[in-house]
Design a protein around this nucleic acid. Sequence first.
DNA 1: TAAACTAGACCGACCAGTCGGTTTAGTTTA
DNA 2: TAAACTAAACCGACTGGTCGGTCTAGTTTA
Lengths: 199, 199
Amino acid sequence: MNQDKQQKRKAQILDAALRVLVQKGYDSSRIDDIVKESGMSKGAIYWYYKSKKEVYLALVDHWVHRYSVTLNHIVEEKRPAADELKDLFNFFIAQYESDTVVFKALLEFWSLAGRDEDFHQKLQLVYSDFLYLIQKILELGKKSGEFKDIDITATALSIMINIEGMIWFTLFDVNDLTPRRYIQTITDFILAGLQKKSH
Amino acid sequence: MNQDKQQKRKAQILDAALRVLVQKGYDSSRIDDIVKESGMSKGAIYWYYKSKKEVYLALVDHWVHRYSVTLNHIVEEKRPAADELKDLFNFFIAQYESDTVVFKALLEFWSLAGRDEDFHQKLQLVYSDFLYLIQKILELGKKSGEFKDIDITATALSIMINIEGMIWFTLFDVNDLTPRRYIQTITDFILAGLQKKSH
DNA sequence: TAAACTAGACCGACCAGTCGGTTTAGTTTA
DNA sequence: TAAACTAAACCGACTGGTCGGTCTAGTTTA
């Protein structure tokens, strides 16, 4: 069986695992749920992954890989820092509007990171990279004279937290506030705080 | 047995439940863990609460009640909106610095809200109230002419998300960034975005 | 024909909640 | 005031069910 087919099979398992994860949470998600959801057999799942935990660790990698391609692309081409930030926000809006399930899963992984060292290590790395990426944008804006002299680390974290905060919309209602309007508001807000007055 | 003793017993259970919750997560937390942690017997716990779920639902109420006293106090006395906001932030810094365990538990409750209707309803209410409180402060600042004409709902949510974002520090490391420095940075940031230029 | 499966029985560990019984604190009786 | 009584508070062994992971015996795919 070729690599492609194997990748498809793995993706089939991970897709099922993702759906199960957001419905039940990690601890209450059953291998048999993944069996049902994926349409594969228990044997097949244990053929590709050696344990339940391995499945979910692979799920993190799967999505990190998907996201990092686009994210790195945003920073690579040199443009005004403000535009790069906007692209970043827009990417996550688009992501949210096309499918909220990944955001829901994220919450579960945060929770897991708090009590499992393997998940903690993996996510620590993911977030270090993500923060580094935002910091690069901020530094760029600072060096080019586009941005004020702000605390880059703290600002980067705030930006990240506001993006991750979209999880909130998957959980609760806020009057008629949409993620799009939310992100647009905080984009304006953040840029107002960052940019030097141009007049 | 008098009310006081009963309340003490319940607090003893809830304290233990909180510690167990952050160590194991909801689904993997065992009644026997609470037994061990509280020094009480299984029978005693089931005497006060009819199920595991009831214990944790009571835990939410317990802390909501504790927090709401202070929070409402901050808004009650009429002072400049910026000062009220600062007090809000300072309250959560103090809270975090004295004990991070409640922040960790919060994450678990968010996760639970995503898959359990009872927890969802309870937290929806908690957050509606909290958002309402922040909105009141923002409206106050707007009416008094202290603040610009911002999107109150979206700004309130962003403030809340940045506060809740302190959870991040219980999970991961960011270079040498502390919650205090983080909150101070975003306080400046937010106030800069909100306040009218005073010169 | 070897790898990639399917179906599902099975094992051992684990655990929420129950229940029969005991203790404690307080009240009534004689 | 001491014995008898009562109900709340509490104890912990036990049960019925659950589930991750294994394994077997056969089938399909490339």
